[in-house]
């Protein structure tokens, strides 16, 4: 699988390259600035990009902007954004186009290589993976999660895990229920959130968007 990597700190970039290579990824470009990232994404068209939010030259959200711009030109280009901080605002911006294939994780998540690499694969396959911390922020906001009140606590739990990007199998394992039970919950979630019938992956993205309160 071909990866473009953007990280300005040498140690982290080096570590990430080694980790990805150890899991049989081909790092086709490793860049350290926003403009270089955009260039690499457009010319290499990788299977997935792993991008640090804060990049030179401005050291603001350069990486995020480059990723968003690349996705405007190549819709659905899988991007996993890493950051020292997670912001709901940025999660919304990344997911706003509704085409999925977005990951948004705290940098700490690379501490668990297996889990991290699984997430990269999920994003590459078109899934959505939000950091548990983003989800925790969303859930703590009781006023704004009102539309989700129609969901049962069980269904909310499934939706949260879905937002983290977990497959039905993984969700079943986490919640210690059968995969069929998970399927039933997801079907109920789609129904209660008024999501139009379409391909399963897309509906999962839409459900997460509804969770984030973004108009798809």
């Amino acid at each position: 699988m071909r990866v473009v990597l953007a990280e300005d700190l040498f140690l982290l970039r080096d570590g990430l390259i080694r980790m990805l290579q150890a899991y049989d990824f081909e790092v086709v470009a490793a860049v350290d600035t926003g403009p270089d990232l955009l260039q690499a994404l457009l010319t290499e068209r990788p299977d997935v990009a792993v991008v640090d939010v804060r990049l030179p030259p401005t050291f603001t959200d350069e990486g995020l902007q480059a990723a968003l711009e690349a996705r405007r030109q190549i819709p659905g280009l899988p991007v996993l954004v890493l950051s020292q901080y997670v912001e709901q605002l940025y999660a919304k911006e990344l997911l706003a186009d509704g085409s999925g294939a977005i990951g948004y994780l705290l940098k700490d998540r690379v501490f668990d290589p297996d889990e991290f690499v699984a997430t990269v694969h999920r994003v590459a396959a078109g899934g959505t993976a939000l950091d548990p911390q983003v989800i925790a922020m969303l859930v703590s906001n009781t006023e704004r999660t009102k539309p989700l009140e129609r969901l049962t606590p069980r269904e909310r739990e499934v939706l949260e895990l879905m937002a983290e990007g977990r497959s039905n199998g993984a969700i079943a394992e986490r919640m210690v229920i059968t995969e069929r039970a998970v399927k039933k919950h997801t079907a109920n979630i789609f129904l209660k959130l008024d999501l139009p019938p379409s391909e399963e992956d897309h509906r999962r993205v839409l459900a997460v968007l509804a969770f984030l309160q973004v108009a798809p």
């Binding site: 804060r54 603001t60 912001e87 709901q88 605002l89 922020m137 906001n141 009781t142 006023e143």
Partner: peptide, 23 residues
């Protein structure tokens, strides 16, 4: 706050409001 540095006051306040328990 990083958003303030990245985006300035308007977006930082928006981010702040998203984190608030109120609507």
């Amino acid at each position: 706050p990083p958003v303030l540095a990245d985006r300035g006051l308007a977006d930082a306040v928006r981010a702040l409001c998203m984190d608030s328990p109120l609507n």
